[in-house]
Every structure is written in C-alpha cells, then in structure tokens.
C-alpha cells in the first residue's frame, strides 16, 4: 500500500475507534521515514489517543534533537537560551516535548496557577522564566505600584517558582510620558531586592509607533529584555528601531510572528521556497524572523514566542526556529566561567 493510501486508510480507521498497537506502529514507522520536520505531517488527520500522541511527540523530538542555545544578547549573556520559548498558553501536551528539545525559557510563567508536572520536577535554576505584569495596558493605571507588586507576589505563592528571571511590563507603556514616570521600574527594584525578580524588561505593544517609542526606552538604559511585534513584512523603520535595541545589547524576543506574518508570507511562494518551507507558512515565518540580521550582521532577535496548539504546528515551528537560527550569523558563546 502506498504511504498516502496507508495514511488515508488509517485516518478513516482511527475515526471509528483507536488504532491498534500494530496499526499505530505501522503508521508511525512510515511517518518517521519522512525525516525530521515531516513526521507529524505524516500523522495529520489521524485521531490518536493521548499515549499515541505522546509517542509521536517522542519521535518528533528524537528526529530534531536538542535546540542550540545562545546568549540572550550581551546584557543577558549569562542566560544561554534556545531560539524558541515555551509559553504558558501552549497545549500542555507539548511542554514535555519542548523541554526534551532543550527549550529552557518559559514565557508568561506568571500566569501558571500551578506548574505543569514536567516543569515542576526540574531544578529551578535549570530554566528561565518571565512574568508579564499587566498594569501598563490602556485603561489600567501604570502607576498602581501595589497592583503590579501584588501580581508578582501572588503568582509566586500560587505556582511556587521562587523567582522570575525577567519582570516584563505588559503590554508596555502607552506613551513616553507614562514610561518616564518609572513606576514599573520602582516595583521591579523592590521585587529585585526581595529576590523575587532578577532583570527588567518589557513586552511592548505598538500604541505609540515603535520608531517613536523604542529609542526612548533604549536611551533610558534600564531595560535588559524587550519583546515586540515583529514578523515578515514589518516595515523597515520598525525593524531599524529593533536593530538599535538589539545593538544596545538588549535581549530581543519576537512575538506575533505568525499572527501578523502568515498572510503576507503565504503570498510569497518564492521566499517560502528560498527558505525551504514550501507549503509551511509557520516554518517560513519563524525562520524569517530569526534569520533577520542587524546592519552589523548579527541577528536582531535571539528568540521568539509562538502559541503552539498541536504536534504538527509544534514540529513546523520548531523546524523553523532551528533553521532560522542557523541562517543568522553565529554568535560565539561566552567561554564557560571557572
């Protein structure tokens, strides 16, 4: 039976009842022969049990191997991180596979009411986290010191993480005046003295256009990490603002990579072919973002976040992250400290 016929036959069979062990092994073995980045695609349309999904994820992870780690730019060079982060809103079934790939940064960890068991069993110092502190969104009071402070303290009591590596002002400041008031930074300083957070960052949304806002934040010289909207087709002035922040040594994370990039990317089949991602818009979007360099040739972004909902999307995005990082100029890791 041809592979496509086998898949079609198994798709129909799996809708009636769970595949037998023999049938599942047959279809998984066939899918694995497609190679890294294509295994989950070979299982598309199958209705799998939880344990079958877990076994398929193991095959995906085994084929991809460990993701590379690089310094989170120069201000956070002690943080060696992977080109993609785990996010609190991922499908929980993907957290274990993500950790198995070596992903060691958890974005929005402050939203966990309870840590996933795969994360809870790890030594705290073996991974990095951020908390997105929500007082700076419009309609909220960015000068509400207590609200910001209590959000961090309460979340640590709920999830037991002990501390967050990065305090991110979320959704960033609405305008320069709000930024200069500095309440978020004062909250961060108190939390840092108490050992609850370590570095100051922002998840900046584009209320004020980025070219008008980012340089102001960079010039203040207090931010160590910045997460921003960047995708394929982001206008050059915005990209230049991000390149400036990155050149300043700020650890840069790209978000909305697929949300804002998938439509223009899908309309550029030549670029997708160039990226060896024909038919895989998610892979192309991630690869493009991580492979975009500053004028000095180094990557603007060291990592990205993406909401991953199923194994196919997981495999496609991770493949893009692995290849995108290879496209960017290699950043020589700092020598290990004695």
């Amino acid at each position: 039976m041809q592979n496509s016929d086998l898949l079609q036959h198994m798709q129909a069979k799996s809708q009636e009842k769970p595949l037998s062990r023999r049938d599942f092994v047959q279809v998984l073995t066939t899918a694995v022969t497609a190679g890294p980045g294509l295994i989950a695609a070979g299982l598309a349309g199958l209705s799998l049990t939880r344990s079958q999904r877990a076994e398929a994820a193991e095959a995906v992870v085994a084929a991809i191997g460990k993701l590379p780690r690089r310094p989170f730019n120069t201000r956070l060079k002690h943080m060696q991180i992977t080109p993609m982060c785990i996010c609190q809103d991922w499908n929980p079934e993907l957290v274990g596979p993500g950790l198995a790939l070596g992903i060691n940064f958890v974005h929005k960890a402050g939203y966990y009411n309870q840590l996933p068991p795969e994360l809870a069993r790890l030594p705290r110092e073996s991974y990095f986290t951020d908390i997105t502190v929500d007082t700076t969104s419009p309609g909220h009071n960015p000068d509400d010191f207590d609200s910001a402070y209590n959000q961090v303290v309460q979340s640590l009591q709920n999830n037991g993480l002990k501390y967050y590596d990065i305090y991110r002002a979320h959704f960033g400041w609405h305008d320069p005046a709000s930024f200069h008031k500095g309440t978020s930074y004062k909250v961060f300083q108190r939390l840092k003295r108490e050992g609850k957070v370590r570095h100051f960052g922002v998840s900046q949304h584009p209320y004020t256009p980025y070219p008008n806002m980012i340089p102001i934040e960079v010039d203040a010289d207090i931010l160590e990490a910045m997460q921003v909207w960047f995708s394929y087709n982001t206008p050059q002035p915005i990209q230049d603002a991000f390149a400036g922040a990155s050149k300043n040594g700020i650890g840069m994370t790209a978000m909305k990579v697929f949300t804002n990039g998938h439509q223009p990317m899908s309309q550029n089949p030549q670029l997708m072919a160039q990226l060896n991602a024909t038919g895989k818009v998610g892979k192309a979007c991630i690869q493009y973002v991580l492979g975009t360099n500053r004028p000095d040739g180094k990557p603007i972004f060291q990592t990205c976040v993406s909401a991953l909902g199923n194994l196919q999307v997981f495999e496609e995005n991770i493949s893009g992250a692995t290849l995108g990082h290879k496209l960017a100029m290699d950043v020589t890791p700092e020598p290990a400290r004695a």
Binding site: Q88, D89, Y111, Y112, N113, H140, S147, Q151, S155, N158
Partner: peptide, 13 residues
Amino acid sequence: RLSSSEFSVAITH
C-alpha cells in the same frame, strides 16, 4: 481552559 490567570487583572478591573 488554559488553567491560567492571564486575564485576572482585566476581570478584576
């Protein structure tokens, strides 16, 4: 559905 507190601030507000 996400076992999350992501929107707690907005709900509380």
